[in-house]
Simulated assay, not measured.
Amino acid sequence: MMRIVHACEEDLPEILALQRLAFRSEADLLGCETIPPMVQSLPDLVREFGEGTVLKAVSDEGALAGSVRGFRDGETLRIGKLMVHPGFQGRGLGRRLLAAMEEECPSCRYELFTSVASNRNLELYGSMGYEPFRETDLMPGVRLVYLAKMRNGAPGRG
């Protein structure tokens, strides 16, 4: 069984290590080692921690299995860095983390992004009511799609 709880600042080095492990497949998919999750520093993560909400999923044995971050921006909650340890993937944990963040930070509108090439992510987000509203280039060869939904489950057009 997994518990989803608030992370504390002492968890951040382990969350950063999980982030690099979990986003390895995305970096490989995109053929780009310098996507932001792979190069984020601990001081930057500490700053993010102070500005938003960080949740973590912990197994009964105490292993860090996943994490997600949320940042309020007016009436929008921007959700980012949803990650699941490769050993815990395929069990619905990403879905549970995303739902927990939505419940933790009720908002009028939820927004997140992923690579246009990340079919698994797009399938998950679509199944949870998120719809694309914009695309942009992060860097050459890396195109992002932004998705949103409204609190009531309606599409969150940007």
Rank of each mutant, 00 (worst) to 15 (best):
S67I: 06
S67K: 03
F113Q: 14
E61G: 13
T114M: 06
F71I: 08
C8H: 12
T53L: 15
R69H: 10
D137C: 01
F71M: 13
A117H: 12
G90I: 11
V54R: 10
M128N: 06
R120M: 12
G80N: 09
R95V: 03
G62E: 05
M38L: 15
F113C: 14
E33F: 09
L93P: 13
I15W: 02
G52C: 07
R91E: 10
F133V: 01
Q89I: 06
F113G: 09
F49R: 10
G94D: 11
P43Y: 04
L12I: 03
A99Q: 15
G90W: 10
K149F: 04
P36K: 07
P155R: 01
N152D: 15
S25D: 15
N152R: 02
R157E: 12
A117Q: 12
P36M: 07
A17T: 09
Y125S: 03
F71E: 14
E135R: 13
L138P: 00
D28T: 15
D73C: 13
V84Y: 09
R91T: 14
G90E: 11
N121L: 06
L77C: 14
L112R: 09
S107W: 00
L122T: 01
R96Y: 04
A117F: 10
C105V: 15
K149I: 00
G141Y: 01
L21V: 14
S115K: 07
F23A: 09
G141N: 03
N121P: 08
G31Q: 05
M83F: 05
L112P: 13
V68K: 04
A100K: 08
S127H: 10
V54E: 06
G153A: 08
F23L: 08
D11N: 07
R151S: 13
E103D: 14
G31I: 02
M150W: 00
R24Y: 13
G31N: 03
S67D: 03
M150I: 01
G87V: 11
G66Y: 02
V46K: 12
G153F: 00
G66M: 03
R47Y: 12
P155I: 04
A99M: 11
R91N: 12
S115Q: 12
V39H: 10
V142R: 00
A22K: 04
G129M: 00
G74R: 07
F88E: 11
V54T: 15
V46S: 11
Q40Y: 09
G153Y: 04
G90K: 12
E103G: 13
M2C: 05
F71S: 07
D137L: 09
L64A: 02
A22W: 05
P106W: 08
T34E: 15
T53Y: 07
E14Q: 14
V142T: 02
F88G: 02
C8E: 14
G70S: 03
E102A: 07
M139P: 02
A7K: 04
V142F: 02
R96T: 08
L77Y: 00
M2S: 05
R78Q: 12
G50D: 01
G50E: 02
L16S: 03
A57C: 01
R96W: 10
V145G: 05
P106R: 10
R91A: 12
R3C: 12
L147E: 01
G70L: 06
R24S: 14
G52E: 10
E135P: 00
C8A: 12
V46P: 02
